[in-house]
């Protein structure tokens, strides 16, 4: 890889990293696992003046049980998340979706925080963040703030993070008993991004769907909640298959799917409907 020239710093604490960011301003870029940033550097699509490598900031790694939610350090790798007993027990959708990210090499280097802060709508984890209403803990030299997932993703590769801020951790609410989960990913090769992905969480009770959360990958410049589906499916009886299909047929409402080499928008809309149906069935435990 032959990137443009840049300065490189590797702080060993969060405070040191934040100071560097404050000093460098918009010219600095945080390097997490590098799985998204390095390709941009390679293609000379990004020209940061300084790379702030937070790979040695230990306090950004790890998964902790915090009672009503779990806290995942932003620099926790995909591999560590997939294999974390806490994540698997309390937030299985995170583990399910993370296990589909790229390939083992990428999962060993790539991080949850890096993936979310990169805000690629074709990434798998932003949609999961929306489905689960994750909260983003953000620090700058001036202090800490918490941004709900619904307010975090502003546009294609654009987030609510200010220059000088680092995403330090992600709070994932525990949904409690009765929920089923599924991440339905459609891609052409195992390493390719999702053409469309559907993250679904469904709470069942006495044969009906009490509540559902559905979020879509790569159906617009940001991950989106399929609210029309969520409303349509509430109270649906699980035996009545046609209800789920009808609900899923509204998955592409209010979406703005992109056109690229792998799919045109009308095909993405069609996929969103088909895959949402499959995701609902799987999350409801009926397949």
């Amino acid at each position: 890889m032959i990137p443009a020239s840049f300065d490189y710093v590797r702080p060993s604490s969060l405070d040191e990293a934040l100071e560097t960011l404050r000093d460098q301003g918009e010219d600095a870029k945080v390097l997490a696992g590098g799985q998204s940033l390095l390709p941009l550097l390679r293609l000379r699509l990004a020209y940061p003046g300084t790379l702030v490598d937070v790979g040695r900031v230990k306090e950004l790694r790890g998964v902790a049980d915090r009672g009503d939610h779990i806290l995942i350090g932003a620099m926790t790798t995909h591999y560590d998340i997939v294999t974390s007993p806490i994540v698997r027990e309390h937030c299985p959708l995170v583990a399910l979706a993370t296990a589909t990210v790229a390939d083992p090499a990428v999962r060993h280097r790539g991080t949850l925080g890096g993936s979310l802060a990169h805000a690629d709508p074709a990434g798998d984890l932003p949609a999961v963040a929306r489905a689960l209403d994750m909260e983003f803990v953000v620090r700058s030299a001036d202090g800490e703030r918490v941004i709900p997932a619904a307010d975090f993703f502003l546009d294609y590769l654009e987030t609510a993070l200010d220059p000088g801020e680092i995403l330090t951790g992600i709070r994932v609410p525990k949904l409690g008993p009765g929920w089923g989960f599924h991440y339905e990913k459609f891609h052409r090769t195992a390493q390719a991004w999702a053409i469309v992905g559907v993250a679904a969480a469904v709470r069942r009770s006495n044969g009906t769907i009490e509540e559902a959360r559905v979020a879509l990958t790569n159906m617009g410049p940001t991950p989106v909640r399929a609210t029309a589906v969520e409303e349509a499916v509430r109270g649906a009886e699980l035996g009545a298959g046609g209800v789920l299909r009808a609900a899923a047929s509204r998955a592409d409402e209010d979406t703005h799917p992109p056109a690229d080499l792998h799919a045109r928008p009308d095909y993405r809309r069609h996929l969103a409907r088909v895959l949402t149906h499959r995701a609902l069935l799987a999350a409801a435990g009926t397949t």
Partner: peptide, 10 residues
């Protein structure tokens, strides 16, 4: 990313 080569997984 645009010119897709299959890997063993595919």
């Amino acid at each position: 990313a645009d010119y897709l080569l299959p890997s063993a997984a595919d």
